[in-house]
Design a protein around this nucleic acid. Structure first.
Lengths: 342, 342
DNA sequence: GTGAAAGCGCTAACAA
DNA sequence: TTGTTAGCGCTTTCAC
């Protein structure tokens, strides 16, 4: 009968070198206890023997995982893809592993992922919540468990949590003011669900801009929904079919604006002549649009690193760390829509 | 001094209920040993006490993780994003967790991720390799370790590994034949690195089509590089600057074609009039391009589920399972490029 | 600088 | 149907 080949353990290495597994363990982790020469020897032998550490054992024993969980609502979206890339890079530099999960805008899946991450005993969680997240209780539970959690971009409404967001009210305000300055009086909004910051705050900025400029807010010009392309399409069609189209639409996200482009094309309306658009957020697709959208810049490069830095602070200082809300200012980028009418 | 609050374990639940932790463990995992009534009671208590299983402990003890590692080269790419989504869904249905990692087209990172996954003791690995992967040895090591691994789309050249790919040679052949039928004689190729199947096979299909139709292959019309937009841009510019532009370009991926669009626009050449394009692979961006690209369809919907199914077969049947190569046929989708000249 | 002892939380095999 | 025993592979004191 063939000898069952099993994984190589610290003990195996120790046996070969006539030391104990403790020494090997320390050497492999560069513990200062071990002399350079033995450390080098141990490492070489481990390598030669094809040793692969067992994280489950390590985590169990050390009671930490050097792993951070990241949850995003969608992945085929250049905004989140970029953020994820930058978080991966940060993690790499700080010797953390990332567990990435995608909620697919589904609150149930989001919850499942959160629970999995807790069970994995991640050292911290970074999350951008899904469209209609109903997991506030889970977040509270996580907090009470002492697991650090940082929200980015899409947050929940609760001051007890840390977050990194952009200044949504300000950004929306800027966009709508620009529309006003361009001569528009009839300004509609395709907005996001109001239970979530980006939906709420961008709508707030919209309202504020109209109010300050004494422009009537026509409720018939406002529709709330999700943040995807389909949502934009549907919203536009609804406005169109009810003949409620304003002169310009301020859309809550880039994908929503994209849906508007599709819908407008389908019904034969020209942008910006028949219906103009300005949006929150950008995408690499924008280069190919005609006309190229003017938009509120999301400062994508800053969000990932700042979020990661924040979670690290939390992890390192433990319970003592007070929640911190970071807000990043936005810029308006003008392209070929929402241009001043002569 | 406050009592240090630690995590709730099986033992805690057992104590409260006057049973042993084994019973609790079994009950929580729906082991048939346990009677319905006690199982229900145990579950309720566990829930009430806020019990969270410790996967590290479970994995260590059970010697399996119910976790599958997935590595992709890029994430901001609708092809991979779609595949990832479908793999997540399959995993969800089969009660597996996914560990997702992005190599960012970097062989070093790819290797690091592979090692991390081995250390995590994932039950299997699904991977689409990076542009210039130099990890063949690592793959062999993984194989010798008995960890199931399945490649998809981008594979390495080795019959001992399972893979799910599309029929690249056939797809490229179809595209180039179409170009020929459309009246083109001067057909160039912006290809991918030849060390990787998609680069090699798509080039092979290109060559085969020319050969069969007795059309001269002008080496000056062929450039090899990466699979991203920048690569397409650079390749086009190189052809252009050397005045080596053919009448039509067959590009190895959609992003490469996109780079060609950018470059052509920059130098003032019109597609398809001045230079025509047909490509391998699609993207949701295509809708916005003018002209809309004709392309070889990647059958994106099939790849994820088939890959997942294959890794499951491997995991379930262990060593006994022979490597299996699945190849999916392609279709040509004609839009506004590479149209028959009258 | 190195080692002995103890245990992290859980599950698998076998007994009762 | 439930419990006993024996680890999984590693790290952390603390002693030498």
């Amino acid at each position: 009968m063939s000898k069952k080949k099993t994984q190589i353990t610290l003990q195996d290495i120790a046996d070969k070198l006539n030391v104990t597994k403790v020494t090997v363990s320390k050497a492999l982790r560069n513990h200062p206890d071990i002399s350079d020469s033995t450390a080098k020897l141990i490492k070489k032998t481990a390598d030669k023997m094809g040793y692969i550490p067992n994280f489950a054992a390590r985590n169990l024993s050390a009671k930490k995982t050097s792993t951070i969980g990241v949850i995003v609502p969608v992945i085929a979206n250049s905004f989140f893809a970029q953020i994820i890339d930058s978080i991966y890079n940060c993690a790499f530099d700080s010797d953390y592993d990332i567990i990435l999960a995608v909620s697919q805008e589904d609150s149930e899946k989001e919850k499942k992922h959160l629970e999995t991450m807790l069970a994995m005993r991640v050292d911290g969680i970074i999350i951008s919540v899904c469209e209609k997240s109903e997991n506030h209780n889970t977040f509270l539970k996580i907090k009470s468990l002492g697991v650090p959690i940082v929200f980015f971009d899409r947050t929940i409404e609760d001051d007890n949590f840390s977050s990194v967001t952009i200044n949504n009210v300000q950004g929306a305000y800027k966009a709508v003011v620009k529309a006003i300055e361009s001569g528009y009086k009839s300004i509609g909004h395709i907005g996001g669900w109001q239970n979530i910051n980006i939906g709420r705050d961008r709508y707030a900025g919209y309202k504020e801009a109209l109010r300050k400029h004494k422009i009537h807010l026509n409720k018939k010009h406002v529709i709330f929904g999700g943040f995807g392309e389909d949502d934009g399409y549907k919203a536009f069609m609804e406005l169109y079919s009810k003949q409620n189209l304003p002169d310009i639409l301020f859309t809550v996200t880039f994908p929503v604006a994209l849906g508007v482009y599709n819908a407008a094309k389908e019904v034969g309306l020209k942008i910006p002549k028949d219906i103009d658009v300005i949006t929150f957020g950008q995408s690499s697709i924008n280069r190919f649009l005609k006309p190229k959208l003017s938009y509120v810049d999301l400062q994508t490069n800053d969000i990932g690193p700042k979020t990661f830095e924040l979670i690290l602070e939390h992890i390192r200082s433990g319970k003592k760390f007070a929640p911190k809300k970071i807000e990043i200012d936005t810029d308006l980028v003008m392209n070929e829509t929402c241009i001043k009418k002569i």
